[in-house]
Amino acid sequence: MSTPIKRLEIIKNAIELEDDDIILSQLARLRSEAFDDELLAIVTALENQNYTAAMAAITAWLQSQRAMTQWRDPQVAASKLELRALEERLRDLIDRRNARVQQLDEFNDLYFSRLGPLMSQILQLRKTLAELNLRRQQAEARRREEDYRRCQQYMSQAVEVLATLTQRWRELPADSVQAADARKLLQQQSDLIANLLAEAQELERGLTREEEEEPARQARDEANEEYEKYREQHHDAEVRLRKGKALSEEDQNELKRLWRQASKLCHPDLVADDLKDEANTMMVQLNQAKQRGDVKAIRSLVARLQQGFEPIMASDRLNDLERIRKKMAQVREQIDTLVSELAELEKEESWLLVSTLNNMESYFTQQEKALREVRTALELQVNEAQLDSAA
């Protein structure tokens, strides 16, 4: 019953304001909510734009409804009031979280703007160093493989020489001087083969298997991925900052204020179940408008929410005690989740930094100095790695 009453009050005010858009937005919903002939007659008058007749019929119908005394279960009334209090608590927590996230986003964008070029250079150097390390390891593996193959070749040749010497020794008289010399040569050749075999075994232990290169390859891939990810984040931050600079300070502040106001009105966690899809759609539109820096679009969304999307909370819609209690349990669970999320967020290093930072300029100056030192150290490492690879 309360929904048509509120709907007609909105339409009545819209007629007085001569606002056709609001009338049309409410008319479709009123048509689906009309439960008696008087309401259907009002719908027909509005559709025919017979606003004089519609106004008179609306006034009469509202007066008749207000004259009726409707009994309400006190438990339902109390539960609805408790649910509304829980919803307001949830709304405040969502707003608090949004404020924290917004503050972190603004700081991160500023961080990318101030330190992004230095960080990009550092990540590029790390990427180069990881690639050089992988190449060095691969070159070392190829060198060892070549040494091993050469050792195999020498040993094969030595074995052939040993076979030839053995054959000659067998052909000589056992007590001849030549046989004694041949035995010495055989011993020398055997020692050579033993040394080559030991060298081959040592080289085998030093051979790099493909899986042993995996850490260096993974480090190279991670450095590449980190660089590309950071470059994309840096670009997005620059785009947002450019859009922000296109707005006046007054418009920037209004955009933040309106976004928080609208997100409180249409956040999917806050609306009645039958409005969640619509709330999700509006939330997407809201966030897109924020990304574009479109103050006008957000202002329009807020107006739509205030005029045509209320009542949106479950406490405005539900009148069944069991459903109200079920919704209360759901909202309490959402509140507990948000409280935990906020507690975790406020323990994070990034939030502790942002919330306690007094001198932003001094902080960024110190960070720039530290990052330049890191860049210099990495440049030296890259130069050394390049010299090693050229040697």
Rank of each mutant, 00 (worst) to 15 (best):
E249Q: 09
R205G: 04
A180Y: 14
G206N: 07
E226P: 03
K264L: 10
A246E: 07
E228A: 10
E210N: 05
E212C: 00
R242E: 12
Q167P: 10
L186A: 08
Q178P: 09
D269T: 05
E171G: 15
E214G: 01
G206V: 02
E212Y: 00
N195S: 14
R183S: 13
G206I: 01
A237K: 02
R242K: 12
A182P: 05
E226T: 05
R231A: 14
V239H: 04
Q167K: 14
Q188C: 05
D251N: 05
A200Q: 13
N224P: 06
L207P: 03
N224F: 07
K243D: 01
W169V: 15
A223V: 02
E249Y: 06
L255K: 01
R220E: 01
K229D: 11
E204D: 05
R257V: 08
K264M: 13
H234V: 03
L185D: 14
R168I: 10
H235K: 15
L186E: 11
E228C: 04
E210P: 04
E250R: 08
R183I: 14
K245M: 07
E212M: 01
N224Y: 08
Y230D: 03
L255V: 03
A262C: 14
D251Q: 04
E211V: 00
L197W: 10
A194C: 09
E212Q: 02
K264P: 07
T208L: 05
Q188I: 08
L207G: 02
K245A: 08
E211G: 00
E249M: 06
R205Q: 07
D236C: 09
D221H: 03
D269W: 05
S190I: 12
K245C: 04
D175Y: 07
E171R: 15
K264V: 09
Y227D: 02
G244M: 06
E210V: 02
E210D: 09
A216T: 00
A182F: 06
S248L: 07
R183V: 12
R260N: 12
Q252I: 06
N224M: 11
L197P: 07
R257T: 13
E204Q: 04
G206Q: 08
E211D: 03
K243T: 04
Q218K: 04
E249A: 11
P215Q: 01
R260I: 14
A262D: 12
A174C: 14
K229V: 10
R183F: 15
A262P: 13
D181L: 15
P215E: 01
R168C: 07
K229H: 12
A200S: 12
D191Y: 09
L186Q: 08
S248P: 05
Q261G: 07
D191L: 11
P173M: 03
Q201V: 13
I193L: 03
L265H: 10
R242I: 09
V239A: 06
Q178I: 11
P215A: 00
S176C: 06
